[in-house]
Design a binder for these strands. Structure first.
Lengths: 110, 110
DNA sequence: AGGCTATATACCCGCAACGGCATGTATGGT
DNA sequence: ACCATACATGCCGTTGCGGGTATATAGCCT
């Protein structure tokens, strides 16, 4: 609880992003993920724990198996953070020009 | 060079995100950023170095001053990674349902 | 019950990141 | 020339993360 902060740090890990990409196709078992990642099983579990605590995945227990499934909600915050930047690329050349245009003399703060 | 990898790790740092947010408004001097961040000046410079190497900011030298300005291009890759996930939130309840629907028996990989 | 399977947890290690202080370097001002 | 300003870099200490191995836990199967 307390996952108000954007899960950028969770997504910073390439392995964890790969896990999410794999779960994007379909839910998977830990063993399956482990195999795909070329990682030790505990290593995989650890990443899954982080993802779980970030609310990015959910677990469904079936006997001893654990089906991990995607939970994209937290990615909303990433999307939200990205929003003001979106549209800045590709519009003209860069954001610079307009900025340099909009600050001719007022650059000292009170 | 070699910034093919998505700059998630760079964005994982809250301070660096704050810097980008500040630069979103207008270009700023290092001292100005330092003040806003409540951080030591060298600390700020180091973060700026990371952002620079990630191509997320650009520097314009004016005498001894350095104007740091935003360069949003690399955020495109973040946006691109996010793309397949976008639309998964809010559509129905979750992505789970459809997944659980689409894998009744084929769960073993070839 | 015993053993096998599937996953989680505990512990340890190595390394890289963040922060601070001290110092280097360049430019301006006087 | 000298000192101040603005920033970068170097070095250090601490901390946290990612990975591995060993071990616990839980549920099947015979």
């Amino acid at each position: 609880m307390g996952s108000v902060s954007i899960p950028f740090d969770v997504l910073a890990e390439p392995t964890r992003r790969r896990i999410l990409d794999l779960l994007l196709e379909r839910p998977r078992l830990v063993g399956e993920l482990t195999e795909h990642l070329g990682l030790s099983q505990p290593g995989t579990s650890k990443h899954l724990r982080v993802l779980r605590e970030a609310g990015l995945v959910r677990v469904r227990a079936e006997a001893q198996r654990r089906w991990y499934e995607l939970r994209p909600e937290p990615l909303r915050e990433v999307d939200a953070w990205l929003a003001p930047y979106r549209g800045l690329w590709g519009t003209s050349l860069d954001a610079l020009e307009r900025h340099l245009d909009a600050m001719p003399d007022e650059m000292e703060e009170p």
